[in-house]
C-alpha cells in the first residue's frame, strides 16, 4: 500500500488560512489502512480545524467527506455535485489522490494534508515499513524475497557493505541490514552460492527513463 503521515496541524492551518469554505477530503483506501487519511482521521482533522477556527473567532465553513478511492476518477466524479460550495479542498489522499482531484476540478485549489511516504506493509498495529521502490523491474526472486533496492541504505545489488554489524545497518542500529537478512535467508535455502554472482548495474530507465510512467492495457479498455 501507499503510506503517509498527516502534516503538523500548524502547517495545515497555514496552508488553508486564505480560504473560507473548505472541504476536508479523505480516502478510504491505502491512507485509511495506515491511519493517516481514512474516514476516521478525516473526521478528526475536520473537527480539530473547526475547533481551532472557533477559538480564534474565524468565520470559516469546514466540512468533510471521504471517497472510497481518491485516485480513481469513477469515485472523484462524485464530488461533482458538491464541489462548487467550497473555495478549497484539503485532501488526505496520497499524492496520487491529490492530483487526481486537481486534474478533475481545475477551478478549486487542492491542498495536501498528508506527506506521502512510501510503498510498504503493515508490520504490526501502528507500524509500517517501506518495502518497495516501484523500480519497474522486480528482482526479489534473486534475493530471497528481500529487496535490496528498497531496504539497503545504499541500494547495493552486491552487498553487504562494510558497515553491517550484528545484523544492523551502519546508518542506525534500529535499521536491520537488508543484506544480512538476504544472506541469512539464502543460507536457509542452501542458495548462498547465488550471491557469488556479480549482479550487473540496474536498468533505471524502467523507473525514470521517460518521465512519469504509465501502464496502458488495451484488453482492459472498453
Amino acid at each position: 500500500m501507499i503510506t503517509g503521515e498527516q502534516k503538523p496541524i500548524d502547517e495545515i492551518r497555514e496552508m488553508i488560512a486564505p480560504y473560507k469554505r473548505i472541504l476536508v477530503l479523505g480516502c478510504a483506501s491505502c491512507v485509511a489502512e495506515c491511519a493517516a487519511g481514512g474516514e476516521k482521521e478525516t473526521a478528526m482533522l475536520a473537527s480539530t480545524l473547526r475547533m481551532a477556527a472557533k477559538m480564534k473567532g474565524e468565520d470559516v465553513l469546514i466540512e468533510e467527506k471521504t471517497l472510497d478511492r481518491q485516485c480513481v476518477r469513477d469515485f472523484v466524479i462524485l464530488l461533482d455535485d458538491i464541489i462548487e460550495k467550497y473555495d478549497a479542498v484539503l485532501s488526505l489522499g496520497c499524492g496520487a489522490g491529490v492530483q487526481a482531484v486537481a486534474e478533475m476540478f481545475t477551478e478549486v485549489p487542492i491542498i495536501p494534508a498528508i506527506n506521502t511516504e512510501f510503498l510498504g506493509e503493515t508490520r504490526d498495529q501502528g507500524y509500517w515499513v517501506e518495502s518497495c521502490l516501484g523500480c519497474g523491474d522486480c528482482m526479489l526472486h534473486h534475493f530471497g524475497g528481500i529487496c535490496p533496492v528498497a531496504r539497503c541504505s545504499k541500494q547495493l545489488l552486491n552487498g553487504p557493505c562494510g558497515g553491517s554489524m550484528d545484523g544492523r545497518c551502519e546508518i542506525n542500529p534500529d535499521v536491520k541490514c537488508a543484506w544480512h537478512l538476504i544472506v541469512d535467508r539464502l543460507t536457509k535455502f542452501g542458495a548462498l552460492d547465488r550471491l557469488e554472482n556479480i549482479y550487473p548495474p540496474k536498468d533505471w530507465s524502467r523507473k525514470q527513463g521517460g518521465g512519469p510512467r504509465k501502464i496502458v492495457r488495451e484488453d482492459q479498455q472498453k
Partner: peptide, 27 residues
C-alpha cells in the same frame, strides 16, 4: 561505496548509489 551521507554535513543530500562498488570496479 562511501560512508552514508546521513553522517556528514549534508544529510539532506540525495544519495546516488547508481552503481555499487563491485559494479564500479567491473566498469
Amino acid at each position: 561505496s562511501g560512508d552514508h551521507h546521513i553522517f556528514g554535513n549534508q544529510p539532506q543530500a540525495m544519495g546516488v548509489f547508481d552503481l555499487d562498488s563491485i559494479q564500479f570496479v567491473q566498469v
